[in-house]
Design a protein around this nucleic acid. Structure first.
Lengths: 208, 208
DNA sequence: TGTTGTGAACGAGTTCACAGCG
DNA sequence: CGCTGTGAACTCGTTCACAACA
């Protein structure tokens, strides 16, 4: 960890930048300014420049940024040059569809295991991955080096399943269940909560 | 808008509080302290007290907060006493399942319309709601007073569908598609992006 | 005593204004 | 001249320390 610490919000924007830059490269672009990028993403140019400046001078004054350099650097910062393996728990409801849908399957991520508690689903193959029973999490994952888990089970089961994932060595969990999960310090949990966002939306609509 | 402005982050936490408080009421509890709530939600007690203090003195020193008062007040602040109607676009993939799954169907929200572009789905009934073609959005929603939209279509179509929703009078959109949508000032957009969160997770795992 | 309520200090992130450079 | 890069000001949110009070 000799690398300077980047602000958390900057890190959060990196995947956005990356996705946009990749699209532009495919379209044959090779240089762009912070102003252009700003229009694609709705992020102010100064914020973009500040973000990019954290990892050194990648732009050329008067010209803009070299797309390929930028992509290489962001992938490097986010550590996407290695393949990150993901186990999905709760494949029936959200798990699989959300993955497809959010088209996050950019290079760098790979779904290797899927679990559910519905007997109907166990044994099925979803997206090329066989669905196992949630009670099998530890057995199946042990020694596989799975670092990430996507927790998409109902709230009541979320804590138990999260514990299983952690016991199996998972170090980072995205929790889609609307419940707080208390885990050891060395496990990172990111909460994605639709009702929080709905609440915020409704508040803004009535107060402005 | 005589009500004092609450910080955005406070508003975002309100639905979390609400959900937890409702559960506790069902369990027969009628009073709780900021410290107890803190343990349920992983939010520091001082933050909770600050949040609650924005809407006046609802606690009793030495005792804690009255659960029913609190719930009533939060529902009021979030404007959940009226019914908010939601149109879901992209029912096939995420739309419906995410709704079920995230069990956001707390009182205050109601899904009234569903749209998709897949001919296979059009005409089907999902959760008691008939699925219509996305091209029908304006026809179907006009005059219905739908305020909210859940945008769960692929990124390529997201902008077009968002425009339709706005033309039909929708004022708030939750965008699950991984693309920035530029809409008129008076329309509120909340972005929920899995890959941003995955990126953040991976960064933290490798840098700590 | 126990817990709320809150001004003040602190910290993180954004924006601004402009210096630096191709 | 145009666009990047950046210290400084500002804004927003969190935490702290402690006063207020049942």
């Amino acid at each position: 960890m000799e690398r300077p610490k980047f602000p958390d919000e900057t890190i959060r924007r990196m995947p956005l930048y990356l996705r946009c830059l990749n699209r532009l490269i495919i379209l044959g672009k090779d240089t762009l300014t912070s102003k252009e990028l700003s229009e694609f993403l709705g992020v102010k140019p100064t914020k973009i420049r500040k973000d990019f400046s954290y990892f050194g001078d990648f732009g050329t004054r008067g010209v803009g940024y070299d797309l390929n350099n930028l992509v290489r650097e962001i992938r490097n910062i986010l550590n996407l040059d290695q393949e990150w393996k993901i186990a999905v728990a709760g494949i029936s409801n959200v798990g699989c569809t959300i993955l497809d849908h959010l088209e996050f399957n950019q290079p760098g991520f790979q779904i290797t295991h899927a679990f559910d508690q519905d007997p109907e689903l166990i044994g099925d193959t979803v997206r090329g991955v066989t669905v196992h029973d949630v009670t099998e999490i530890e057995n199946q994952l042990s020694g596989e080096g799975i670092q990430l888990g996507l927790l998409a089970v109902p709230a009541i089961e979320a804590r138990g399943v999260a514990d299983s994932l952690v016991d199996a060595g998972v170090k980072g969990i995205i929790n889609l269940a609307p419940i707080f999960i208390d885990l050891p310090e060395d496990v990172e949990v990111v909460q994605m909560d639709l009702s929080s966002e709905l609440g915020r939306l409704v508040y803004h609509l009535t107060n402005s």
